[in-house]
């Protein structure tokens, strides 16, 4: 019974993904005003050629700063978890 349900779910997922991928055309994303603005004015406003980098480092610089901070904090946490303990330091996890 469980196997049947699993198989049915997998089949439905497969069919859905294939149907969605067949119906769409490659390289034709949905229209939006924001894209047009970036593509037309990105080069003159930031001075860079690659529009993705222009957005990441100039229009959306704060997001990149936040991403860098998140990475820094993650490394800080891992360093805290795996740091060398002193000889007489007791474990108290519970």
């Amino acid at each position: 019974m469980r196997l049947l349900v699993t198989g049915a779910v997998v089949l439905v997922l497969c069919a859905g993904m294939l149907a969605a991928s067949v119906g769409l055309e490659y390289g034709v994303p949905a229209f939006s005003d924001m894209d047009d603005y970036f593509i037309q004015h990105g080069q003159e406003q930031t001075g860079g050629n690659n529009i993705v980098t222009d957005i990441v480092f100039d229009f959306r610089g704060f997001d990149t700063l936040g991403e860098a901070t998140v990475l820094f904090t993650a490394v800080l946490g891992i360093g805290l978890a795996f740091r060398k303990r002193k000889e007489d330091e007791e474990y108290d996890y519970e």
Partner: peptide, 8 residues
């Protein structure tokens, strides 16, 4: 299609 099936 092959890539999607392999993903699943």
């Amino acid at each position: 299609g092959i890539v999607l099936a392999g993903l699943l």
